[in-house]
Amino acid sequence: MDLAGWYPALAERGLAYGPAFRGLRRLWTAGDEAYAEVTLPDEAAGDADGFAVHPALLDAALHPVGLLLAERSGGPRVPFAFEGVQVHASGARTLRVRLTRAGSRVRLVAGDESGVPVVSVESLALREMTDATGAEAAERSMFEVTWQAETVTPARDVSGWVLLGDGPAPADLVTPVFPTVGELTAAVSAGTVEGPRALVVPVPAGTPDGDLPDEVRTATARVLAVLHSWLDSEALADTTLVVLTRAAVAATPADAVRDLPGAAVWGLLRSAQSEHPGRIVLADVDGDLTPATLAVLAAVAENPSPTGGQVAVRGNEVRTPRLGRPSSRPPTNSSRRTVLLSGRSAPAPSTA
């Protein structure tokens, strides 16, 4: 097939691909099958070794699916659900692909230039992308994180909580303090203390005049070390990890994010929460740790599902992040918004 104008034609239908994703080089069709050669552009090829299969390469391998599934009307069809995915080799920069129609689904087999299998997908379901073009469709596709007020009944019992730190607990807290996770584990193993219900880890806030990159690295490295020690401790298998920040998220219109190292910790631990659901609570507070705040956090830790394990405590109010459509938009003729879609991916380090 002649591929001249292939990507401009897709853009007219609402599928605009950036330079890193324009990898389709050659294409043949034969009945219920399509054969393609896809290659990573030079600007993305250097990242290939960082992935099992580079996402831009796999994406390009699926660009011909519209030829196999006749689009009767409406928008183009895009990948929706994968089944039976196997990666056979990593680091490929070029794929030779066979796509086969199987009813309303597609099967993919891809190898490298020498024929060595790289990736296969037993079944790929696609869905029509309706109203794919136009400014109104773009607005409908926009979402934002909003912090909604939640009803949380403070726990009556906050016993069995331990604080991680270098000094004593605040005077009005009875929570014992352990300098390290290792010392807490040793005490639990020796029977000196019972296995705690929760371990509170305060994150020191950054300083206004400090070296911000260094403070971010220090904060995330410290929390990551605590995370690893806690996960490795069999004695703390039933202990919830509660990580405490201050001014690391903007949960109300009046909030300002002043603690950027703490904000980086939130990003790190959101990934850890997905790997260890129900075991980690992220909490941002607007003051010192008090018995009242501790009672709220205890309630969240005991039942993290309604909040997703992420809360901001502002006075007597508890807020949680929710994804929703923007509540207000700038007038079309008076201001503009810019959205950056980079098309460049980088492998994320595992938190565990």
Rank of each mutant, 00 (worst) to 15 (best):
D2G: 03
L15R: 02
G18N: 04
A20K: 05
F21E: 14
G23R: 07
R26N: 12
T29G: 00
P41L: 02
P41Y: 14
D42I: 13
E43K: 13
G46P: 04
F51P: 00
A56D: 03
L62I: 12
L68V: 02
R72G: 06
G75I: 04
F80I: 03
L99K: 00
L99E: 01
D112S: 08
S114E: 15
V121I: 15
A135F: 03
R140F: 03
S141R: 15
M142L: 06
E144H: 07
V145K: 03
T146L: 03
W147G: 07
E150H: 11
V152H: 11
P154L: 02
A155F: 12
D157L: 02
P168I: 06
A169E: 04
P170E: 05
P170F: 08
D172G: 10
G182N: 03
E183L: 04
L184R: 04
T185Q: 13
A186D: 15
S189P: 12
A190K: 01
G191S: 05
T192V: 14
V193P: 01
G195N: 10
G195F: 06
L199P: 00
P202M: 08
A205L: 03
G206N: 09
T207W: 08
G210I: 00
D211P: 00
L212R: 05
D214P: 07
A225D: 12
W230L: 05
D232V: 11
E234I: 11
A235E: 10
D238Y: 05
T252N: 06
W266Y: 11
A272G: 07
A272L: 09
S274Y: 11
E275F: 09
H276K: 00
A283D: 05
D284I: 08
P291H: 09
A292I: 10
T293E: 00
V296I: 12
A298I: 08
A298Q: 13
A299H: 12
V300K: 02
A301R: 09
P304Q: 02
Q310K: 09
A312P: 07
G315F: 00
T320E: 10
S327V: 15
S327I: 15
S328F: 14
P331V: 11
T332A: 05
N333E: 09
R336D: 01
R336W: 04
V339T: 15
L340G: 08
L340C: 08
S342W: 09
S342D: 07
S342Y: 13
R344F: 09
A348Y: 14
S350W: 08
A352C: 10
